[in-house]
Design a protein around this nucleic acid. Sequence first.
RNA 1: GCGCCCAUCGUCUAUCGGUCAGGACACUAGGUUUUCAUCCUAGUAAGCCGGGUUCGACUCCCGGUGGGCGCGCCA
Length: 448
Amino acid sequence: MTGIDQSRRGDPMSVRVRFAPSPTGNVHIGNIRAAIFNWLFARHAGGHFLLRIEDTDRERSTPEAVQAVLDALAWLDLNFDEPPLYQSTQKHIHLQAAETLVEKGLAYKEDKGGKGQGECILFRMPGTDMAFHDEIKGDLRKEAKDLKDFVIVRSDGSPVFHLGNVVDDITQGITHIIRGDDHVENTFRHVALFQALGATVPHYAHLPMIVNAQGKPYSKRDGAAYIGDFREKGFHPGALFNYLSLLGWSPGEDREKMTRAEAVEWFTLDRVKSGPAQMDLKKLTHLNQQYLTEMAPDAFFDIVAPILKRTSWGGKADPAYIRQVSALMQSRAQTFSAAETWKYFFVEFPDYDDNAVSMHLKKAAIPPLLSALRSTVAANDFNAAELHRAVRGVEASGGLAEGKLNQPLRVALTGTTIGAGIFETMLLLGRDRSLARLDLALNRFCAG
RNA sequence: GCGCCCAUCGUCUAUCGGUCAGGACACUAGGUUUUCAUCCUAGUAAGCCGGGUUCGACUCCCGGUGGGCGCGCCA
């Protein structure tokens, strides 16, 4: 008896996979990609996706760090099927397994010296060449001489990663281990442990790593390598999920943008690539814009409203007004953070861009026309049809081609050359603010 | 240093011996749009190198080069 409850391994046909992060405060993009692939695999197979928190590092494993993992999974909607297993609660089972191995002669105690800490427990490798089949990398083998005994319990009595990891996989009845390929070499040890513990060896699949724009492994200084960063930068979880699923995997037939259901339906391990993949923020952003455009206006508003609330100028705006601005600007937002550029809708007077001003308001012909337009607008009803008629009328009287007054008007009203349709924008700004801004622009930029 | 893995446009990829080597992002040039964004059209751009096997290799084999990972009482 190993002391490990193997009852959950019941149906050998039922797939059980797990995401087993160690909570360190931030969830790395590579880790979450592993979670996505595990989730996809489980859902495709109609199996179970489990979560295990490897919280044996008491220093870093704070409740906040655990919450960060849970938040990341929730944000990406990676739902798991059973309560998470906290590795720290399994310590006695790990140790019992180690004792069993010692009793069977499959592990032994030894004082390796060092800092004089006493005896630790080492696992005895079989002494033969080993091989296992990787669903992604194919058949992998290692010669006996490269497989050395290793510590499974430290001299201070704490279980080492390899032991805890394997024992917990047995406890959770894991059938397929899908993880980053930095674990490939460990797998020989793990296979030996599964066998020594009398458990069925699970199937393995090692995922290629995600590297940075320089083709190097992501490090702290690369930034934006944590999923919280992407959330803060205004990415849609669906877009990130879609994009990440395409890093190292492809459904073929030129399919890229896909729904979750499609990804689940098409996902198979044999279509996972084996070489490292680079993140491309540009492509992610492009996908993101598509996701934002397709969102229901209310859903878009729900996310954008809190972002505006946090700005110095959008804090106390009327929700109904925000909803209108949101609806107008949604289709041109690449990320949710684009809302931070909507300032001119929420203040009395906009910040004027110097280039825009000199380009569109400094020409001699413009001031008199804007002035005339100001009078016409003030004298008529403030609606789209009238505004349109007013602008066209002034253009005609000034000998300008149709549409040539639009940009000067836009700059006078918003301070910038880019934005949604100028008439729609004006209607949102309202009659008073529009007239006031025209006056200000006329006085400040067109006088003298 | 030793071991293992990988190698198609700048990037993500399709291709499972015979294709004008396809798609997407990015880029360039047009078009639509009052600006921007969107959208449409077109274009530039790839099989790391060297040997084999084969009637025929991006595809199979060997070598080289380059890159990644591993070699802890870390996880």
